[in-house]
Write a protein that binds this DNA or RNA. Structure first.
Lengths: 342, 342
DNA sequence: AGTTAAAATGACAACGCTGTCAATGCTCTA
DNA sequence: TAGAGCATTGACAGCGTTGTCATTTTAACT
């Protein structure tokens, strides 16, 4: 029933160690030997035992995914991407949700790492932005790859995957400007998130490049939540507000949906009286009425590349993977919540 | 740096094996010895190595979570529940998303099981309803716990966690009936899902108990998707339809949101002209306008109990867990999308 | 106190693989 | 064709636990 490396070795007529070399794709194995072994592997349908590999080897076949993000769609996408690579490469994935506020996070972290010696970690925002965490990992000498909001070509080229929120926000703002909107509101996400400042700067840069004044009264500090989107729109559109805003950029889809909700309460017609845009293209940007114009982030692809980048590090120089993309720019998806200024 | 069972043994002045007994909570260890060992464990902050335990032991410390469900909120909740128990009990979780249509699912499954000898599996709907899967697992002699839509006290009392959708649908329908609605539409989910028939039967039972006629024309076959909710509402409310429907039960929140969307397109006011209810209480039932009346399923708690049930099986008789709840009934949450018939 | 059974503990192999290092096979040169 | 030198392969120990079984300690009796 249970097939071990020994069974394969016997069938192939080689030593255990040679089989090990084959399944680990080590160089110095003669082509012919390789084929013989692979044939035996297939015939017996052999699957190397992960626990044994983790125990015996110097580097393990387990990586971790760490997140602190209330957005289920985001987490699932990231997870699926990493998972699919793990499956392909024979790795195991340990999921570690945590909240940064947890006082015992560091301890938690160490425990996880001790329990299953990890080959590395994929860090997603906002945790990936926390230097206390990366310091801790550096100290523990653990490989990691960070998915970050930001523009490429900064420091750690080979430890980071960048999502160019700046550019995406620039483009979505430009989209609005081209439709004749001048007074464009912006509902920010959490101040602590890098994506918030990147998106805000992209918005400001677009305004500047189109000779449009930035007005601080157009900017509302939200929290990436539906409720803060509601409040943001109410604040920006308040009666006694002479701002004459004709478009609102939501920092993410959830806040844009909140803004939509608030507009409805105020009897404002979308997109005739007000254009609203989101960010992220999560499923519910298609489930609002009207459907949201937004910026599409391909999170599953992003996280796949993050996993690949991590694997190249843990495997050292043997089997390099050269086609890794380390910079992504969300692309604009125009739907029904935005339109020309009337 | 790395603390092993030997270090603990040395510090505590006992043998390796005794430490093993203590961390596995085996009986026959003297109280005094137990304390001494635990002290050493704490002092050294010892964490047993999972790979070694999995390799050496007859039963492993890894369980799997299998799902085939496009609903991110559901999956995350289930996952978090299982994860939190795993953390408490020192288990590791392997996530296995799959789609039932995948031809090679069986092979996939076997591969996963070979790679990391699993102590057991938590199956979530709709996979948990597939007898081909449970048969496969029985064959492979793998423990599993199923989360199922259904009424308690059926067969496998100790392998299943039931979610009483029947009762919840009965109650939500009753809620509508008490508000004077007679012509109540129902948008079903996927026919293949057990939850669909359970909810439908609950709806029918409530109607019957309130002397209200069931009309097949009130029932629309949807797909648990937003789009099918849109189509369902359009069909049920079509102009040439003399049904005079004043309320619609969505089979889940997503379809209810779709129905809401369709109503808006048709210029129907909610809840004045039409009451709409959902099912599941996912976050976006709070993010529609108006907010959805729905049935709240505590998925994280449900999955925690599923994990606990699984652990009692894998651990055999030693450390039984007696407070496991195996039957849950979603509770009605009344919000703004439902109201009295005018 | 002496015997016996039961409870508590320990010694050691084994789990399935990888790392190390030694042994063998092969190619190329002179 | 011998020898050097590199490419390929193999023998064996060891990773950190748990299972088995032997041994010691304790408790419970005469």
């Amino acid at each position: 029933m249970k097939v071990t490396i020994n069974d394969v070795a016997k069938l192939a007529g080689v030593s255990m160690k040679t089989v090990s070399r084959v399944i680990n794709k080590e160089p110095s194995v003669r082509k012919k030997t390789f084929d013989v072994v692979m044939e035996a592997v297939n015939e017996l349908n052999y699957q190397p035992n992960l626990a044994a590999r983790n125990l015996a080897g110097t580097s393990s076949f387990t990586i971790g995914l760490v997140y602190d993000n209330p957005n289920a769609y985001y987490v699932i996408d990231m997870q699926n991407g990493v998972l699919s690579r793990c499956k392909d490469e024979g790795y195991e994935l340990v999921i570690h949700p945590c909240s940064y506020s947890e006082a015992n996070m560091e301890h938690d972290f160490k425990t996880m790492i001790k329990r299953s010696r990890l080959a590395g970690l994929v860090l997603t925002p906002p945790l990936s932005e926390q230097s206390s965490i990366t310091n801790l990992l550096d100290e523990l000498n653990i490989h990691y790859v960070r998915v970050l909001s930001g523009r490429p070509n900064e420091e750690d080229q080979d430890t980071c995957i960048y999502v160019n929120d700046f550019k995406a926000a620039y483009e979505i703002t430009t989209h609005l400007l081209k439709h004749g909107h001048k007074n464009i509101g912006f509902i920010c996400g959490d101040k602590e998130h890098k994506s918030t400042s990147e998106r805000l700067e992209g918005y400001k840069a677009a305004l500047a490049d189109h000779n449009t004044q930035t007005n601080d009264a157009f900017i509302y500090d939200g929290k990436y939540s539906f409720e803060s989107g509601v409040e943001g729109a109410q604040a920006l559109l308040a009666d006694d507000n002479k701002l004459a805003i004709t478009a609102i950029l939501g920092g993410n889809d959830e806040m844009a949906a909140g803004a939509l909700f608030a507009s409805r309460l105020m009897g404002i017609k979308i997109p005739e009286q007000l254009s609203i845009t989101g960010f992220e293209n999560s499923p519910f940007s298609r489930q609002t009425w009207p459907k949201l114009t937004t910026a599409h982030q391909e999170n599953d692809v992003i996280s796949q590349h993050a996993a690949r980048l991590l694997f190249t590090k843990t495997r050292g120089a043997r089997n390099q993977d050269k086609d890794i993309i380390t910079s992504f720019t969300p692309s604009i998806v125009v739907r029904d919540s935005s339109g020309p200024k009337l």
